[in-house]
Design a protein around this nucleic acid. Structure first.
Length: 412
RNA sequence: GCGUCGGUGGCGGAGUUGGUCAAUCGCAGCAGACUGUAAAUCUGCCGGGCUUAGCCCUACGGGGGUUCAAAUCCCUCCCGGCGCA
């Protein structure tokens, strides 16, 4: 039996995009879908009840963080991630692969999921000439795996593909990801290639470890309920992306993640290429990307699942989505603004509170501000994707995209 | 009234063996950033003006003085705390 079934219900004509239903042991996910990030087995500032009220279909937790605290054994002994955090809908775990990047190459370097075009400098946070980023970084990579220095207490830990899978089995999410290496967009071509090849070897090892564990579980007559996604890498180079999609696409994964860092310019081309190669009957998850405009591009080019920290992270610093673009609620102009955050939004926050009130909460550092802002931003993003889904069924994807972006990007 | 300590930028509070002081730092304020969460975080600005990695004004209760040079020393006045009458 498979841990996952994926039914494609409707396609965007002449495009890779589609709408479907992904069914997991904890229920189904209507795709395309926005998966909410809950790194440490909690979506920051929100309760599961609030998440459900928003319409969140699934959450994504993180192997590295949960391994460090509270420890995957504790989660296992508590009955697994779902029981531990009281979340009964689908859940996924990222492998810790992204931390290879964020605690490694990206450490202190000011780089992230999106590379900026030339002209916008990525200013390193550390200017001291004698300061070695190489020494300061918290992750060191070799062929076998990655050695991490805990960002919490400085203790040293070792992740390999096999170890990541073992930890993810303990955590027990419905969908897991292979342990991969996410490279910096600044890295040279040769390194991107080397890292991609290493990621491919790790994918094989992850899959093997997963299947081996599964076969043992089956002998014990326990039902295997976890799915595993491979992760396509290749940085910003289309030739590498092609190789990666071809290499992983034929492997026995339940679905695929698309990882790495992009520029706004090369996201489209990369997705079109990769999703044109990956087997169409399996779900594809664009890892870590989810600004509104990215969602339209992603769906158009065949992405089924997204996750992104942006809506919750920026919410906690007072940045809110509106149909006319983002606003910083801390700006002076909102102090006496008694309208709702985003016109015609029917989320709990917009239904009951004014911009002036949210501004007051943020200015006085009241924690409810983070909660109300997170509710709004998640509702906004989740429903952008819901609207996209509906537009696929009604055959109006491009009208939907144009209408949304015209208002969102130009304030019209 | 006498004595004593103190009056610094919106606030708190450094600086008072004179120069490297438009003045540490914190708060408040004004902006910016954030895309598989080292993030309820981080960055910049924050007396005025300009051709803003720099320059020019006005500034450390008011006034006067000493000095090449004063927030820092002296005189005087005003205000506040405390003590004594």
């Amino acid at each position: 039996m498979k841990p996952l079934t994926f039914d494609i219900l409707k396609k965007i004509p002449h495009q890779l995009g589609r709408a479907g239903v992904l069914t997991t042991p904890h229920g189904s996910i209507e795709t395309p879908a926005f998966i909410v990030v809950g790194t440490k087995a909690t979506v920051k500032a929100l309760t599961p009840v609030q998440l459900k009220e928003i319409g969140v279909q699934a959450i994504l937790a993180n192997t590295y963080h949960l391994y460090l605290e509270p420890g995957d054994e504790i989660i296992k002994d508590s009955g697994g991630l779902h029981a531990f955090m009281h979340w009964d809908r689908p859940a996924m775990t990222d492998s810790g692969g992204f931390q290879v990047f964020s605690l490694g190459d990206a450490f202190g370097a000011g780089v992230s999921k999106f590379a900026h075009e030339v002209g916008e400098s990525n200013k390193p946070k550390i200017y001291d000439k004698d300061f070695s980023l190489e020494q300061a970084r918290l992750a060191h990579i070799d062929e076998e795996g990655v050695t991490f220095t805990s960002h919490i207490d400085g203790s040293v830990h070792r992740f390999t593909p096999e170890r990541s899978i073992e930890i993810q089995h303990n955590i027990g999410a419905d969908i897991m990801f292979v342990f991969d290496e996410c490279t910096s967009p600044m890295a040279p071509y040769d390194y991107q290639k080397e890292a991609m090849e290493r990621t491919h070897q790790w994918a094989k090892r992850s899959l093997k470890a997963h299947l081996f564990s599964n076969s043992r579980e089956l002998e014990n007559k326990q039902k295997v309920r976890q799915a595993l996604f491979g992760i396509v890498q290749g940085g910003r180079h289309l030739d590498l992306r092609k190789v990666s999609a071809q290499y992983l696409g034929v492997m026995d994964f339940d679905g695929f993640g698309i990882g790495g860092s992009f520029t706004k310019k090369d996201l489209d081309a990369t997705l079109a290429l990769v999703n044109g190669i990956l087997p169409s009957e399996k779900p594809r998850h664009l890892l870590g990307i989810g600004e509104p405009s990215d969602l339209f591009e992603g769906v158009e080019h065949g992405v089924d699942l997204f996750d992104c920290v942006a809506p919750t992270r920026i919410a906690r610093t007072g940045m809110l989505y509106t149909s006319h673009g983002k606003i910083n609620i801390l700006n002076a102009q909102f102090v006496r603004d008694f309208t709702q955050i985003s016109e015609s939004c029917v989320c709990y926050t917009c239904s009951n509170y004014t911009r002036a009130y949210i501004a007051h909460l943020f200015r006085s550092r009241e924690m409810l501000g983070a909660t109300l802002a997170s509710i709004h931003n998640l509702y906004f993003i989740v429903n952008v994707v819901n609207d996209i889904r509906q537009s696929i069924f009604s055959g109006t994807f491009f009208e939907c995209k144009e209408n949304f972006l015209r208002k969102y990007q130009h304030g019209g």
